[in-house]
Amino acid sequence: MLLATPVAYQPADYLPILIQFGLALAFVAFSMVVSHLVGPKRNSKVKDASFECGIESVGNARTPISVKYFLTAILFVLFDVEVIFMYPWAVNFRELGMFGFVEMLMFMGLLLAGFYYIIKKGILKWQN
């Protein structure tokens, strides 16, 4: 059976991504332009006001939000970067064998210690 996978990858292999990107961009631009040209335009002050279920809008819309979201984002950044370390490890898992496994167990142990700590610290307590 003929397999489709190349053995050696070339930079040219990545070129089609550009084509795909061009296509996507073209489609998006097309729909934007067309809808802009086709649709009617009738503005009024009341209509332009931001929607708050019919009640008059109060204050700035871009208000500070709960810090929990921020904490979530920060945690993601940290843990996601830890996950980055696992990708090469996972791909080469079999070659690394037992040594690699034990090392990663230690790594994950530390990760989990930190994880347990932040949970205990109340990161997911949205009530307060």
Partner: peptide, 23 residues
Amino acid sequence: ASNNKFSLLGAIRAAAQAVSYEL
């Protein structure tokens, strides 16, 4: 960009949720 409180909250939720589950 919408300058709407609902939109902002939705966007924040989307981001927080996306990153949480991406992990």
